[in-house]
Write a protein that binds this DNA or RNA. Sequence first.
DNA 1: AGATAAAGTTTGAGTGCGCAACCAATTTTA
DNA 2: TAAAATTGGTTGCGCACTCAAACTTTATCT
Lengths: 158, 158
Amino acid sequence: MSATVETQTQSLEAWVRLLRGHSATVRELNAQLTADWGLTINDYEALLLLSRAEGERLRRTDLVRNLQLTASGVTRLLDGLEAAGLVDKAHCESDARVTYAVLTDAGRTKLKDASCSHVAAIRELFEARYSTTELETLADLLGRLPGAPATAGDCTAP
Amino acid sequence: MSATVETQTQSLEAWVRLLRGHSATVRELNAQLTADWGLTINDYEALLLLSRAEGERLRRTDLVRNLQLTASGVTRLLDGLEAAGLVDKAHCESDARVTYAVLTDAGRTKLKDASCSHVAAIRELFEARYSTTELETLADLLGRLPGAPATAGDCTAP
DNA sequence: AGATAAAGTTTGAGTGCGCAACCAATTTTA
DNA sequence: TAAAATTGGTTGCGCACTCAAACTTTATCT
């Protein structure tokens, strides 16, 4: 009985470790991406989101939502991407508060170049370890936690 | 066919988002812990590891391994815990290179106090969303990725 | 012995990010 | 139509963490 509680307690804290345990994996992906292409994962994801958005442009708030970053985080992220010439600013005519981030030609090219090895890395990471149904299960389970992205495979979905 | 590949590509990148999507959740837990007890999650985990280690002491390298932090990260983490009087330094007789981190009485008490609400928060997070078997599945699946902790519920296991 | 490699720890510099505070534009209320 | 509340975006600051480079103590090779 006391053993049960002990085990409970112990494993409860282990769930957090389980959840956190993959920051290392993500860091690894990030390291590859930065080394090979000078992009952080967030850079990459931002470019990806833009490339899929209509007109290849997105408001900063949309990026906040989709990248799960704060507004200031997005500002600085875009600072970098703008400095690198991968995105541009554009103003909204109907609402002077909003600034769009627009993918440049260079950005589109960069994304295309980088995606090749990045996607390969992700594939290696996941497809080597999980079957299709397991991936679905994982997506289902992880998707239940708060703050999870909408559904796997769907980001802005025009 | 091209559709298949497209979908593949899209979801592949989504897996990363899925994996990263929970930093917010962890941050939430962290915020609670800091607000209520002045401990970061890593502080907490370090104390927890120490409390379960034999002699309530651990070499720094062991903490590096178990906390998934770099050596310098552990140094600074312990700096904080030492300053707060929650752990002490101790030297190893057989190997003059190693320094132990030892749990103090204050540390033990602090951990015990904090664990109550922390464990409750974790329980709420997980038990509300998953059945026992689902938790096992999740642990199994996540445990396959590189850098995952040994097995759920097992940290240093004397 | 003396050189040299190896292991553990610390320090310095830099990065990514959130938080709080702020400005500016817009919508709501009265 | 003026005041109040909300929303989009930026800036200053601090924290946690990594990486690279220094020491320091111990083990190994000649």
